[in-house]
């Protein structure tokens, strides 16, 4: 019997990153900008994507990948807008990974898209580690999660381009300081952009829409 050492060097997250890079190149070839929309359960991810589709579907061709444990429920909401939607059921998984996105991209009409929204599984932890091939990473938190939610999840804010503090119209009712959440996000990541939104305050949604427009126009 003899014993030998074999070099393996397989990094689980790097392996994901390689597929993510492939997705990113593919999307870039088609001139598509992809937004990875992350946030806790009930933070408002689906609603903010719906509002973006409502406001922008005449200007841009939009597609959506809805990821969830049972993704069909959100996917049905998006289908009402008559945009291409892929329901990516993760089953038991707590996050989307680059491989799942690669499969979804196969099923989307890439020739007919300018913007792809990828709604991640409701979770502020696991999606942080998994790049998907996106160009912009967006994290949404709502005031009802408590105004210490940002400092409790520093890593996701460190890795995102945009932080949205949502449902600010109910801040008082839930005893949360939305401005503190914004300043916490900026302390975590001085290069992040942070905005406050509520679906009931039209002007606040304008900031979200402007962000998408600016990012898309720069990408082109």
């Amino acid at each position: 019997m003899c014993e030998i050492e074999v070099e393996v060097v397989h990094d689980v997250l790097k392996a994901n990153e390689e597929i993510a890079l492939r997705n990113n190149r593919l999307l870039n070839d088609f001139g598509i900008i992809a937004f990875n929309i992350m946030g806790a359960i009930g933070s408002g991810k689906t609603t903010l994507i719906e509002l973006a589709i409502e406001r922008l579907s005449e200007k841009y061709r939009i597609g959506v990948i809805a990821g969830d444990i049972v993704a069909d429920i959100d996917a049905d909401r998006f289908k009402r807008y008559d945009v291409p939607v892929i329901a990516m059921n993760t089953g038991k998984e707590c996050h989307l990974d680059a491989h799942l996105i690669e499969n979804s991209l196969d099923q989307l009409p890439l020739d007919d898209l300018d913007i792809l929204f990828i709604e991640n599984v409701g979770n502020l932890i696991c999606p942080t580690d998994y790049l998907l091939g996106e160009f912009k990473r967006v994290v949404i938190v709502s005031v009802s999660e408590g105004d210490d939610i940002v400092i409790k999840h520093p890593m996701i804010f460190k890795t995102c381009d945009l932080a949205i503090v949502n449902k600010v119209d109910i801040s008082e009712a839930v005893g949360a300081d939305a401005d503190k959440m914004v300043s916490d996000a900026l302390r975590m990541n001085p290069s992040i952009k942070a905005i406050k939104t509520s679906k009931n305050i039209g002007e606040s949604i304008d900031r979200w829409i402007e962000y998408i427009e600016e990012s898309t126009d720069v990408h082109r």
Binding site: C2, E3, I4, D11
Partner: peptide, 15 residues
Amino acid sequence: GKEINVRNIKIELDD
């Protein structure tokens, strides 16, 4: 600091 890496393994072979 973000590794999840299988670096190497030791195995037994038949002589």
